[in-house]
Design a protein around this nucleic acid. Sequence first.
DNA 1: GTCTATAGTGGGATAGAC
DNA 2: GTCTATCCCACTATAGAC
Lengths: 181, 181
Amino acid sequence: MDSSVPELRSARQQQIVDVAWRLLETEGRDALTMRRLADELGIKAPSLYKHFPNKQVVEAALIDRGFLLWGNAAREAIAHSGDPLANLARAYRTVATEHPHLYRLMTDGALDRALLTPGVEAWSGAPLGEPFRDPEAARAFWGFLHGMAILAIDGRFPPDAELDRSWDRGLAAFSAITANT
Amino acid sequence: MDSSVPELRSARQQQIVDVAWRLLETEGRDALTMRRLADELGIKAPSLYKHFPNKQVVEAALIDRGFLLWGNAAREAIAHSGDPLANLARAYRTVATEHPHLYRLMTDGALDRALLTPGVEAWSGAPLGEPFRDPEAARAFWGFLHGMAILAIDGRFPPDAELDRSWDRGLAAFSAITANT
DNA sequence: GTCTATAGTGGGATAGAC
DNA sequence: GTCTATCCCACTATAGAC
């Protein structure tokens, strides 16, 4: 074992989550069924229940990975040169745009935190607090990021909307309430 | 007929949508099935299909009403005295908070606009443009409003989050890019 | 750890009689 | 416009043999 990260799952579990990830990313949430997942693995659906108690736990594993993905991207964003606010926004938009199905899985509806790696949700969101004086401002910024991302994914803006400019307008607004101003 | 608004649906269709509305508001989306809807009306599920071609059209009728509700609330908000931005935000938050199931139905996933009253979506959103110089800023503001509303409905903010203050922080940010500044 | 077989649930929708 | 009867679909999950 050369990794310092403990193996929380068996190799087989890892493999199943890998395939589930690919299925979600390429074909969306509707394609992520236990039958389809088993098909992709070359086994029958009931066999999956020897490795996971139910579907929700498989989805939670995907959401967990999603938080890792976003948390790492956010940390890279504030480590970069340039405006941290703009870097964070670009990173958020990129993650959401490049993984729309994962992003919807992560943000749609209630979240059973008992199924996630403890603390991963807060860890992933922590970098958003960096540019601001208080967590309230950071949460307002998160609201803006999420709203823009999900409305874009769901096709709610008019077809001719210039979204780059809207992101810039929002950034200009929140720049006015950062710790540096 | 003493109303100047044309009757787009039969009385029976109106009644069905009324019951669907109540069912959605009181018990949520999972309760809104064709079987359950029929039960509430005292008829059998197949009979519904004499009035509506499918479930999606029933849901579209609810979404239509939702846009009317929000559009009217938004118009009242900007007609009031005080800061239009704050009034709009308060109205938005109130509608979303008081009708969480309807709000999710309206905003979750893609929207088939062919099933809606033509123009109602744009009409309902138009007041958001009032305080701003350009539509891009208005859309950024909408992103903030929607993000805050849906994250709150879905329980995504920490339990101890002071959301009133976050709404205020966002308002302060967007105040900096209104037409009056 | 995998299989076959099956249970159980719930939903949308249609055909045809009355 | 309503009914009965039915179909079809999809899914999660379990039991027990190998």
